[in-house]
Simulated scan of single mutants.
Amino acid sequence: MAETGAPEPRWLVAANVVRWRRYGELGQEFRSGTKAFRPGAKVYVIDTYPATGDEQLTAVGHGRHTGRWITIDTGTRHLHTFRPRLVYAPAVLVRCAGLPVHTREEAAGLAQWLERVARLGRDTHHAAPHPDPCLCHACLPGQ
């Protein structure tokens, strides 16, 4: 049980920001991480919603430039390794107050679905073939 005033821990989906993402005309250029998050940064998914042709989600994590907690909407294709995590960080819990609470099993199911959506988004977002050599998440060894 949490102390008075401290939010209760809850199950959320955690993910990491891709190290490199395809960018520009036909995806022939690369950028590290995203504008808001460093490559490899751990973020927590607090909400998801469909957008025009690309699945979007709301993520909370430490900002790239300030290191402070930020909340931002981003495409699922910019994240990978979705997994359920029990979150204790008050900054995250305050930002997801009022949203539905998930069980561990629900968070695990959401994580599996987001992983599939992210992989599909990375594969189909740019209609052109990958450049050679390619640094994108799908082409890096061990991904």
Rank of each mutant, 00 (worst) to 15 (best):
G61N: 02
P133H: 04
D73L: 01
F30P: 10
D132N: 11
N16D: 10
H126W: 15
L93N: 08
L140V: 14
Q112D: 09
C136V: 03
R68W: 15
D54H: 14
P90W: 00
H80L: 02
W113Y: 12
T34M: 02
E55W: 13
D73V: 05
A2V: 11
V92Y: 06
L120W: 10
G109A: 11
G33S: 02
R122F: 03
P129L: 04
A127E: 13
R122W: 02
N16T: 09
R31Q: 10
G121D: 03
C134K: 02
D73A: 12
A14R: 12
H130R: 05
A138H: 05
E8G: 07
E25M: 07
Y49W: 12
A128T: 08
C96E: 15
G27C: 02
A111H: 07
T48D: 05
T76D: 11
R64M: 08
W20H: 15
G33I: 02
P84Y: 01
R116D: 15
V17F: 06
W11C: 06
E3P: 08
R38A: 12
L86V: 08
I70W: 02
E115I: 00
R22W: 03
F30Y: 12
E3A: 15
I70G: 11
E25Y: 09
H130E: 06
A14H: 04
H125S: 08
P39E: 10
C96H: 04
D123M: 08
M1F: 14
R31L: 10
F82D: 01
P50W: 01
R77Y: 05
G27P: 03
Y23A: 12
L120P: 08
R31I: 09
L12W: 10
E8L: 12
G75N: 09
W113V: 08
A41E: 13
A51L: 08
A111W: 01
P90L: 00
H130Q: 01
V43Q: 04
Y23E: 11
P141R: 04
L26M: 14
G121S: 10
L57I: 07
H65S: 15
E106P: 06
R85L: 09
T74N: 12
I46K: 02
C96F: 06
A59R: 00
H62T: 11
D73E: 09
L110D: 11
R119E: 07
W69N: 08
G75R: 14
P133R: 00
A15R: 02
G53K: 00
V45C: 13
D123K: 11
E25F: 07
L93M: 06
A36S: 15
A128G: 14
V101N: 06
V92Q: 04
P39G: 07
P129Y: 02
D47I: 00
R119I: 01
H102F: 11
A97T: 10
T48M: 03
W113R: 13
T124I: 03
L79M: 09
A51C: 13
E106L: 05
N16F: 07
T71N: 07
C136R: 00
T52D: 14
G33L: 00
T124Y: 09
G75Q: 11
R31A: 09
Y23T: 11
D132W: 10
V13H: 05
P141S: 03
A51G: 15
P84C: 04
T48Y: 02
A127H: 13
R19Y: 14
R21Q: 14
R38T: 09
V17H: 05
N16E: 12
L93Q: 06
A59Q: 03
R83C: 11
N16R: 13
A107I: 04
G98E: 03
T71D: 06
R119P: 03
A91Q: 11
R19C: 10
A14P: 06
